[in-house]
Computed example of a mutant assay.
Amino acid sequence: MRFKASIHNITTFTKLTASLNSLGPLAWVKLSDEHVCFTIIPEQGTQVWAVLSIDSIFETYTVQSAAGNVINLEVPLTSLTRALKSALNATSAQLRLTKKDSAPLLALTIAVANAPNAHAAFPATAANNDDGFDAPFDSAFGSGNRETIVTQEIPVRVLAPDTVAGLHEPQCREPDVHIILPPLLQLKSISDRFTKLAMAGVKSGAATAPSRTRLEVAANMHGCLRLSIKTDAMSISSVWTDLNNPELDPSQVTGIAEHPSTRMKQLGTADGRSDEGWASVRIDGRDWGKVMSVGRLGGRVIACECECALCFCHDHALILYVYLPSDNGEDESVLTYYVSSYSA
Rank of each mutant, 00 (worst) to 15 (best):
R212A: 06
T14M: 13
N89Y: 01
I41V: 04
Q64S: 13
S32A: 06
P76L: 10
L181A: 05
R193E: 02
F194A: 10
V291P: 08
V150M: 13
A67L: 13
K99W: 00
F122K: 09
M221V: 06
T78H: 14
L167G: 10
A50K: 09
T81R: 10
D315T: 09
T125A: 15
S341T: 06
N145C: 06
E34P: 00
T125F: 15
A87K: 07
T91E: 14
L185K: 06
D192C: 12
R282T: 00
A111K: 10
I302E: 04
A103K: 14
L310G: 11
N114G: 03
S32R: 03
N145A: 13
W240P: 03
D232S: 07
A270S: 10
S19W: 00
A160C: 12
D275E: 08
A200S: 14
R296C: 11
L105E: 08
T98E: 12
D275F: 07
F141P: 01
R173Y: 02
S235L: 08
K265S: 15
I319G: 02
S326H: 06
T231Y: 02
E247Q: 13
A127V: 08
L215R: 03
M1G: 13
L108Q: 04
A111F: 08
A257P: 00
A83R: 05
N21G: 11
C306A: 10
V177F: 00
L20C: 13
I149M: 14
S92K: 12
D249C: 10
V75K: 07
R82Y: 05
Y342Q: 13
L159C: 11
S237D: 14
I302L: 09
D192F: 06
D287A: 15
Y323C: 12
A165W: 05
A103L: 10
I110G: 13
N72T: 00
S274E: 04
A124Q: 02
F3Q: 14
N145L: 08
I179Y: 05
C308T: 06
R214P: 00
S79C: 10
G166M: 09
T39P: 06
E74K: 11
F13H: 10
A115G: 09
N245T: 05
E247Y: 11
D249W: 06
L84N: 02
E153W: 02
F312H: 14
H222Q: 07
P123S: 13
S19Q: 01
A279K: 01
L105A: 11
L84G: 08
D192T: 12
R286L: 13
W278T: 00
M1H: 12
G285M: 13
A207G: 01
T109I: 09
S280Y: 12
L187P: 06
V281R: 14
N21A: 14
G272C: 06
S102K: 02
S238G: 07
L80Y: 03
K196T: 05
G272Y: 00
R282H: 04
G289T: 05
G144E: 10
T231I: 00
T163L: 15
D101L: 03
A160W: 00
L215V: 02
G68M: 01
E74L: 11
E174Y: 07
L181M: 07
N89A: 15
A66D: 12
V281W: 01
M221D: 08
R296L: 07
L106E: 03
A111T: 07
A118V: 03
N117T: 07
Y321H: 07
K230D: 04
T125S: 14
I54A: 03
D138K: 14
F137D: 08
I319R: 03
R96F: 06
G132H: 09
E34W: 04
D242K: 09
S238T: 04
